[in-house]
């Protein structure tokens, strides 16, 4: 831990501690893991971006069906390529950490599930979500009829104001009634 601690200045570390839900050890571990992804010559600078393909080689994200969405949501890259800086990476870990609040978690979950980034979960988003959850190949996919039925079921249950989409507050409403969400929306390094 000694080497990583020296790489991250003390005031920066305490700032990260204040702005995220992570503890000192978690930030240091995150820094260690993140610098492992960087090429040797880039390790000195703090604002270096790691391309999405590199980030997705991490075992914690490798098999996650939402891995690309996660990167896109937390990336601040202007090119929208899903690349992460160290701070983006900390944001990600903070939202997925143990101590993050339900509101934060549900906010980011909503953005992860909102595939077209339009602020609501419409039928297209839900279809993509179902495909992500059940598998993308042809033999694992649900039939169109099943899909239609399923989506109408979801909307019936969660679309309280009946506008045909699930917005953030409706989504949070569903989530607040499902106590497992907080414990399952977690990624630990």
């Amino acid at each position: 831990m000694g080497t990583t601690a020296s790489q991250l200045p003390k005031d920066l570390l305490s700032e990260y501690q204040e702005l995220t839900f992570l503890t000192k050890q978690e930030i240091l571990l995150a820094h260690k893991r993140f610098t492992e992804l960087l090429a040797k010559e880039d390790r000195s600078s703090t604002s270096q971006r790691v391309p999405m393909e590199k980030v997705l080689t991490m075992p914690e994200l490798k098999s996650n069906p939402f891995r690309k969405r996660i990167c896109h949501v937390f990336s601040t890259s202007e090119a929208k390529d899903g690349s992460l800086t160290f701070e983006d990476f900390l944001d990600l870990l903070s939202a997925f950490s143990d101590s993050a609040t339900l509101e934060i978690k549900s906010h980011y979950a909503f953005r992860i599930f909102d595939f077209d980034d339009d602020g609501t979960l419409d039928c297209g988003d839900l279809e993509k979500l179902v495909n992500c959850l059940t598998g993308e190949t042809d033999d694992t996919r649900l039939t169109p009829e099943e899909m239609r039925q399923l989506i109408s079921n979801i909307l019936e249950e969660s679309d309280i104001d009946k506008d045909g989409t699930v917005n953030l507050s409706e989504f949070q409403h569903v989530i607040s009634r499902s106590p497992d969400f907080v414990s399952s929306f977690k990624i630990v390094l």
């Binding site: 839900l126 399923l150 979801i154 249950e157 989530i175 399952s184």
Partner: peptide
């Protein structure tokens, strides 16, 4: 089925 899809995935 809503909760199953929206909040059951174990990250």
């Amino acid at each position: 089925s809503a909760w199953r899809l929206l909040c059951s995935w174990d990250f």
